[in-house]
Simulated assay, not measured.
Amino acid sequence: MSLPELDRQPRLEGARYLLRPLAAEDWDALYAIASDPAVWEQHPMQDRWRQDVFRDFFDDALARGGALAIIDKDRGEIIGSSRFQALKSAEEDEEEQSSVEIGWTFIATRYWGKGANREIKRLMVGHALQSVERVDFRVGEANWRSRTALENIGAQRTRRTDLSKYQRKRVLHLIYAIRREDFADGPLASDT
């Protein structure tokens, strides 16, 4: 069975949040959130709150495509961003499954612990698994907040890791995954 091609810049709507393609005009609203150092305190790139560093991150998101703005529907305002990246066919993937990475997600601190991440990830994972067999998440080894959030949505830590460098320091990322067969019975299967 052939799967439809993944639309990496969809418009996805849930009960409380809307995800739509990121636009250059979103800079001010998104940087207002990203400029809070608390957003990045456990992230491997802890200086992303700085305007010059965040500008590179933002420009990269626009250039690569796959970036989405997260909108609080009641307030009509941007509360963060996420991305679809690293789309791979079964032939390109080491586990011989088609996959896409969801990541680079950040949301305003006032939305932490209130179900925003769960709804956002349910929308994104559900959308992706219509076109790929697996969704991957890369998370910094010491980013316990994100690791716990991933485990709460049913992502399983894999044996795969990714080692990169940032400011001449080694950064270890752990890879978590949600497979199509696990999604249907997992915690993201419904919007409750």
Rank of each mutant, 00 (worst) to 15 (best):
L62F: 00
D56I: 14
E95G: 14
D56E: 13
I78P: 07
T192H: 15
S164D: 08
A67I: 07
W112M: 00
E95A: 11
D7H: 06
R8H: 10
I178V: 15
R170C: 03
A38H: 10
S98I: 08
Q156V: 15
E25Q: 15
L19A: 06
L129I: 05
I107F: 11
H173D: 06
A155F: 11
R160Y: 11
L18S: 04
F57T: 13
H173I: 01
S190A: 14
V171T: 02
L150D: 04
R55F: 03
G115S: 05
A149R: 04
H127P: 01
V132S: 08
A67T: 12
N152M: 10
L62I: 06
R64D: 15
K114M: 04
R118V: 10
Y111K: 00
A61Y: 04
E101K: 04
A15W: 12
R20G: 05
T161F: 08
F57M: 09
W40E: 05
W40H: 08
E91R: 12
G76L: 04
A24L: 15
A32R: 13
E119Y: 11
D7K: 12
V139A: 04
R11G: 12
V135K: 01
L129G: 02
V139L: 01
R50C: 13
G154A: 01
R179M: 08
A128R: 03
W27A: 05
A29T: 08
V139R: 00
R20C: 04
L123M: 06
W104M: 01
K169N: 09
Q130I: 07
Y166I: 03
L172H: 06
S98K: 08
G103T: 09
R83W: 02
A189S: 14
S131V: 07
A15T: 11
